[in-house]
Amino acid sequence: MRSRIVLAAADGLTTSAVARKLDINVATARRWRARFLQHGLDGLLDEPRPGRPRTVADAQVEAVITRTLETTPKDATHWSTRSLAAELGMSQTSVSRIWRAFGLQPHRQDSWKLSKDPQFVDKVHDVVGLYLNPPEAAVVLCVDEKSQIQALDRTAPVLPMMPGTPARATHDYVRSGTSSLYAALDVASGTVISSLHARHRAIEFKKFLAKIDAEVPDEFAVHVVLDNASTHKTPAIKRWLTAHPRFVLHFTPTSSSWLNLVERWFGELTTKKLRRGTHRSVRALNADIRAWIATWNDNPRPYVWTKTADDILASIARYCTKINDSRH
């Protein structure tokens, strides 16, 4: 910007004209124009600033980054600011500042998994194509089961939240059985067809398909996005599908549950109802789940898929390249 001010002034523009051209304050243009006239190129440099001189050298910054990224302590899986500061003879505050400046967080670890499905590319195009360009006269449903939902009750009453104190619950609990929830999320409307069962076998999945068949009007084809669970591919299920040709199954790639939008809905159910819920029986658990789903369907909110299949595949390709280029 300082160089542009000088060059614009050299073209014969007034200080006001320079300020308008570069969209800056007139005082700014005047200051750097005067500094250049008085000191030349040196006038465009920053003057020495007041305050305490810098105490951490570039070599120390490099040492912190190198140790953090390429080594581990003898007694731990990752460095802390204090352990690394003791190792390098620096202050804990200095290490903390360097980590923040370079976005280093050794205490955190994310998870990832790449699908090994040989038909991964074709399946991604198939499922994402349904989301972005659904067929006419058809309903697209994302189907899955959330199995082994536990009916849990704490061994002591939950203490309510108070100003300055969060709600508190005991770490131990009494388990009163489990339930399995089958859900079909309508991609267009966000409504959910659901069914609760004590078990999650092929026979329960077949019953759920029959429920979907009864609730979706006959004039619509039914495209179902689901995973590769064995209960979805038994001979009994194949015979049922043959007898109901309007049903078309679209399988997500293995290890790619993120492609199924109903998993996002399961996440909301878990966060908003199940994780902190207390139930003394499976019947109470099922009643609570049914009530939550009814409330959801009163005001359904569809999830909007935005990435194309090509965007997803390009992102995965970049990640694979990063992994291959890594020395680890």
Score class of each variant (00 low, 15 high):
Q119K: 12
P160I: 10
R100A: 15
A167Y: 05
D144T: 04
D172A: 13
P166R: 14
R97N: 11
R108Y: 11
Y173Q: 09
V140Q: 07
L130T: 04
A188K: 14
A183Y: 00
V174Y: 07
V139T: 13
S115P: 11
P134R: 14
S194M: 08
L152C: 01
G164I: 06
K123T: 07
Q119W: 09
V124Y: 04
K207G: 07
Y131E: 00
K116G: 13
F205R: 03
D153K: 13
P134E: 11
P134L: 12
S179C: 09
S180L: 02
K146Y: 02
R201P: 00
D172H: 14
V127T: 08
Q148C: 05
L130H: 05
F120W: 13
F208H: 09
S111F: 15
L104K: 05
L114S: 12
V121K: 13
R168Q: 15
R100M: 12
H107A: 15
D153P: 00
V140H: 02
H197K: 04
K123Y: 08
D110V: 13
V192P: 01
D144R: 07
G164F: 08
R168W: 10
S189A: 14
R97P: 07
A101P: 00
I193N: 02
D186S: 11
Q150M: 06
D117Y: 05
D122H: 12
E204R: 05
P135R: 10
Y182W: 15
P160R: 09
P134C: 09
L196I: 11
L159W: 07
R199C: 02
V192R: 04
F205Y: 12
V140T: 00
L159N: 10
G129V: 02
P134Y: 12
Y131N: 01
F102K: 14
P134K: 12
S111A: 15
A202R: 07
Q109L: 15
L181M: 03
H197M: 06
H171C: 12
Q119Y: 09
